[in-house]
Structure formats: structure tokens, C-alpha cells
């Protein structure tokens, strides 16, 4: 029997044209996202950064200083630090202490597991003293599912760290110390409704493990990095892309995160988002693409570089580093 032909998705830019959103242009730069490096203590199956213990790329002190100067800009309200494990960058403690003085929202995306390591456990204090918001990936509330994606034993370690963080006030109502969890699907399908999943997470984690957190962010798996390799190995890349296209939501596209974010790579290159960063798609269309030539006015009005992976952020309820951006539209069967 011949294999079924699954149509290649409509080029994303054409989809934007049909929704009267082309060209997609930045609205402002509200969030400065900084990739501190690709070294990580874990080796997760879904990682679009393809981070791991063997990676050596890390942001230099000079580049971090430049980021700090940019973060001081008036329009920027949020400094969002990603990796790898940001904790593995030797300059990050200095950076957090300095960035906290700017009085902006300061987020670190941590794998949490690293905070059990003697070498990095002091970061709990660093986070508390700088009122850093923590965002941590926890793909599922069941150990077996989480471990399948993040590595054997990772769930129990994350739970242990959340217990420590809860003890410091993180994830507790009224403490002002924010601990958000990040869910992504365990395969080639869209995440369910964020509110419903948050309810399940909260109930299960509180009842079974006695731990709490603030919000759950749902992220759609982007066909980039290791997840793309997974799709290719399963022969399901085309099918997944078709599903993303079917779920295209113009409202999610209108409010897509890259319109208010700037992403800085470990070497100071500038990107529209973290996914473009991993694909090597630097800011284009005449805007400066390196931090050394930073020009706020040019960048806040820049045209955003898009490609077919952008379907992931615009499918269903939408997907951003802050989770869903709206309600899903259309009939999904």
C-alpha cells in the first residue's frame, strides 16, 4: 500500500497575509530575553535548545553588562533569563544582583534539579534575595511521564526542590515569591486548555506531594531542535505541521510573544524569539542583529522574521513563554 500524502503546510507568511497580519511587526520591546548559555545539567528529550552537560557556549560578562544596560531602558519591564541552566553561567549571580536593582520583573527559567547540586544550591538564596520569579519545566504531574521526557529520577528531584522553595515562600499565596511551572505535551499534539491543566497539576501536586506553585504555563512543542529530530524519527513531522496549521488562530498570531520581546543569544546576537535563535534566524529586514549595534528605535519597529515553525506559537490557544495567549478557536474534532 502506498503511504498517504499529507500536504505540506501553507507557508506561514501566506497564512499571515490571509489574516491581514503580514508583515508581522514588533509593537514594542517589553521583555528582554537573555540566553545565558547552552550548558545544562539535564539532557531533555524535548529541548529545542539542544542543551546539555557537553555544551560549552556561555554568555560573557561583557555581553551580560551590555544586556544590563539595555534592560535599564524605559520600555523594558521584564528581564527573562533562559539557558541551558542559567545557574551554570559563572557571571549569573553578579548579573541577578545587578538586574534586581533595576526594579523590573526578573525571571529565571531553571530546571530546578540543579539546585540540589552542592555547587549550585546557593542559588536558592540568590533567588530569594533578588525576588526572582522562577519558571520551571514540569511536563506532567506524574513521575513516570515527566521522567520519560526529562530523565530518570528528575520528577522526584524537582518535587524535592519545590519543597525547599515552598519553605522559602516560593509558590505560596501572598509571599510575592513566584514559582510558575511550565507544561508541554508529551508528544506530537497540542496542549490542553491551560486552566484545566493547572487545576489538575495543583490538585495532584498538593494532595500527593504537598507542594504548591503559582501558575501553569502551557507551551506547544515547537518543531525545532531535539523535538524536530523526534518527529523526523517517528515520521510524523508533516502530520504534526498539518495539525498545527489546522489549529492556526489569528488572534494568537496577533498577540504572539515576539511582537513584544527581544531575544539575545549567548554571543550577543539578536533574535525575534528563542526558537529563531535556535534556528540561527537573526533579526533581519534592516534592523541591527547584534547587541553591539543595539538601536532601540529600529528594533521596536522591526519586521519579525517568520517561518513555518511559527505555527507552533499561533496554534489553538497560542503559546508563549508566559503560556497561552488566548482561547482556542475552531473545531478540532
Amino acid at each position: 500500500m502506498e503511504p498517504q500524502t499529507i500536504p505540506v503546510p501553507t507557508p506561514f507568511e501566506k497564512k499571515l497575509q490571509a489574516a491581514s497580519l503580514c508583515p508581522l511587526v514588533s509593537r514594542d520591546i517589553v521583555t528582554l530575553q537573555i540566553n545565558a548559555g547552552k550548558r545544562c545539567s539535564l539532557l531533555c528529550k524535548h529541548c529545542h535548545v539542544e542543551a546539555g552537560p557537553g555544551r560549552t557556549e556561555e554568555m560573557s560578562r561583557a555581553t551580560l553588562e551590555k544586556c544590563l544596560a539595555i534592560a535599564a531602558g524605559q520600555s523594558i519591564t521584564t528581564v527573562d533569563i533562559t539557558g541551558g541552566s542559567p545557574e551554570m553561567n559563572p557571571h549569573i549571580e553578579w548579573f541577578l544582583d545587578a538586574a534586581a536593582k533595576l526594579g523590573k520583573r526578573l525571571i529565571v527559567r531553571s530546571n530546578l534539579v540543579i539546585l540540589l547540586d552542592k555547587e549550585y544550591e546557593q542559588f536558592v538564596d540568590v533567588y530569594v534575595r533578588n525576588r526572582v520569579e522562577l519558571a520551571a519545566s514540569l511536563p506532567h504531574w506524574k513521575a513516570e511521564k515527566c521522567d520519560r521526557q526529562r530523565g530518570q529520577g528528575s520528577f522526584d528531584k524537582i518535587v524535592a526542590v519545590i519543597r525547599i522553595l515552598n519553605g522559602q515562600g516560593y509558590g505560596r499565596e501572598g509571599s510575592g515569591l513566584v514559582l510558575d511551572l511550565v507544561h508541554n505535551p508529551m508528544g506530537s499534539f497540542l496542549p490542553g486548555p491551560q486552566a484545566a491543566l493547572e487545576q489538575e497539576y495543583k490538585a495532584e501536586l498538593a494532595t500527593v506531594h504537598g507542594i504548591t506553585f503559582n501558575k501553569l504555563f502551557c507551551l506547544t512543542n515547537n518543531p525545532v531542535g531535539r523535538f524536530r529530530e523526534h518527529l523526523a524519527a517517528k515520521g510524523s513531522y508533516e502530520e504534526y505541521m498539518a495539525a498545527l496549521e489546522r489549529a492556526f488562530n489569528p488572534l494568537a498570531a496577533e498577540n504572539v510573544m515576539c511582537r513584544t520581546t527581544l531575544s539575545v543569544g549567548w554571543d550577543g546576537s539578536i533574535y525575534d524569539c528563542d526558537f529563531n535563535q535556535m534556528l540561527g534566524l537573526r533579526v533581519d529586514h534592516g534592523a541591527p542583529n547584534h547587541i553591539e549595534e543595539f538601536d532601540l528605535e529600529a528594533l521596536r519597529q522591526r519586521r519579525i522574521v517568520v517561518d513555518d515553525h511559527c505555527y507552533a506559537c499561533t496554534a489553538g490557544q497560542g503559546s508563549s513563554c508566559q503560556g497561552a495567549v488566548g482561547k482556542a478557536s475552531g473545531v478540532r474534532g
Partner: peptide, 17 residues
């Protein structure tokens, strides 16, 4: 078969095991 496909995927999306 369509419903099995759609609802298996939906159940997975909702985090069901």
C-alpha cells in the same frame, strides 16, 4: 476511527494517562 484518533489525541492533550 476518526473519533478514536481525535479523542485519543484530546485525552493526551488533557494529560490523561
Amino acid at each position: 476511527p476518526y473519533c478514536i484518533d481525535a479523542y485519543t489525541t484530546k485525552c493526551l492533550s488533557l494529560g490523561l494517562t
